[in-house]
Nucleic acid binder design. Structure first.
Length: 444
DNA sequence: GCATGATCATGC
DNA sequence: GCATGATCATGC
């Protein structure tokens, strides 16, 4: 099937995820034109199958290749339910793949079948309600998810605990109680089925790798709560995003950073302005702002001097010297950052030297300026090729961008292709250029 | 006051 | 421990 028929591009993860996110807040019935699910053979799993078959429209596979094979992405649907206290909890464990007792003893965690399946997952969460048809379950979230870095040590421990039992010939002794996050759960048509194991003649129950329901509850909370819409009052319902933001910021315009900090009970810190922005919008410090995620907007604080010139230039992440040399500007990270949309929250210095909240605006580098940015990129490319990665592109040499160090100290270096490691550097937007852009955008 | 090098601070 | 956003420091 073509992209147009599918509605998404199966070779592009972003496209797949965005297509999945359209489900959020809806039911399958809103998208799928079938009277009833024909898959009544087994009620369990009928939701997942329907998502694959009718929404993503690819053939069901039971082999070990990923669901979105071109990008190595695994599709998982998983139910949450309301507990007695009305909180959302995961209804069940998230099962990945059957444990092959003969195979698993030869694996190590980093190259295991489990990790292969759990590394990159498109997780679609729906609200299970008893008695409801699967077509009418409301989809709560759709997110690309992989085992979080901080959980890996525990999950590796869990994996090894289970595998060690198989290696010592005691697969029949495995129990969910052995482990914390990851478990080997029983999985068979009926409780009498047994499998052989490599180092013992005692038959063992078939088991599958699964993340425990409690673990999934925590994960779901993060995904569902981790993303917050900007709260709206009744008369703000119809506003588009910029209007909503303007309305939100309006009561605070003219206040100094100190006044704002006081009003929100925040102490002086380097990310004070960023936190003030969040408070004004009514979202938590570590919540993602749903509207910003959807529109790909990055909020940035811009402090202007009394003369309207930004106090500091705006930096991007440090670049990799090897990548810089190899990748043309067209598919560089640099172009990616420049093509990003920003929400500038603008403060301006007053006569007393206090910074006062002045305005907000969306900004994205206009296409007409990309040629200048490209020149900066290519000049730096050339410097590195000449073995002079130490030489930066100065702001006096380019209208829009320059290059400057961006490490933790000058000893914080990166390797480069034509010489010894040099200090980490990145591209910056020139202050003068930004000033012009801000004036242009605010005037219009 | 500005350009540029250098470093801090926070969060993951 | 590091990436990244934010800011400081120095010399002209």
């Amino acid at each position: 099937m073509s992209k147009d028929e599918l509605g998404y591009d199966p070779t592009n993860v972003t496209s797949i995820v965005e297509y999945a996110q359209r489900l959020v807040g809806h039911t399958l019935r809103d998208f799928v034109y079938v009277e009833e699910l024909t898959d009544t053979r087994r009620r369990r799993g009928s939701f997942g199958n329907a998502v694959e078959e009718y929404y993503f429209k690819y053939g069901l596979n039971s082999d070990s290749s990923p669901d979105f094979a071109e990008v190595g992405l695994e599709l998982k649907t998983t139910p949450v339910k309301k507990n007695s206290r009305g909180e959302l909890v995961s209804k069940e464990r998230l099962v990945f793949t059957m444990i092959d007792y003969d195979g698993v003893v030869k694996e190590d965690f980093e190259h295991s079948q489990f990790l292969k399946k759990a590394r990159d997952v498109l997780l679609i969460t729906y609200l299970y309600e008893p008695g409801k048809n699967a077509l009418d379950y409301v989809i709560e979230a759709a997110a690309r998810w992989g085992l979080p870095e901080e959980d890996i040590p525990q999950i590796r421990r869990d994996w090894e605990t289970v595998v060690e039992k198989v290696r010592s010939g005691h697969a029949e002794d495995i129990s969910g109680g052995d482990t914390l996050y990851l478990e080997a759960c029983t999985k068979a048509a009926d409780s009498t089925v047994r499998r052989s194991q490599p180092f013992s003649d005692v038959p063992a129950k078939p088991r599958a790798w699964a993340l425990k329901a409690s673990y999934m509850t925590a994960i779901q909370r993060k995904i569902i709560d981790g993303m917050r819409q900007i709260p709206r009052s009744e008369d703000e319902r119809e506003l588009d995003l910029l209007c909503l933001l303007r309305a939100r910021f309006a009561p605070y315009v003219g206040l100094t950073e100190k006044e704002l900090a006081g009003r929100f009970g925040l102490s002086r810190s380097k990310n004070l302005c960023a936190r003030i922005t969040r408070r004004i919008l009514g979202v938590g410090d570590d919540e993602k702002i749903e509207e910003f995620e959807k529109a790909g907007i990055k909020p940035k604080t811009l402090r202007l001097r009394a003369n309207g010139r930004p106090k500091e230039a705006v930096s991007f992440p440090a670049f990799d010297y090897f990548e810089l040399v190899e990748r043309p500007f067209e598919n560089s990270d640099c172009l990616g950052y420049l093509s990003q949309k920003y929400l500038f929250v603008i403060y301006r210095e007053d006569e007393a030297g206090e910074y006062r909240l002045r305005d907000i605006c969306f900004w994205q580098m206009p296409e007409r300026d990309l040629d200048d940015a490209r020149a900066c990129y290519e000049q730096m490319q050339e410097n590195v090729r000449q073995g002079r990665a130490d030489i930066s592109v100065k702001s006096s040499e380019n209208r829009c961008c320059h290059v400057r160090p961006h490490g933790q100290t000058k000893k914080d270096t990166k390797p480069q292709p034509f010489g010894p490691p040099v200090v980490k550097k990145c591209f910056w937007l020139n202050q003068g250029y930004l000033q012009g852009e801000i004036e242009r955008v605010l005037k219009s």
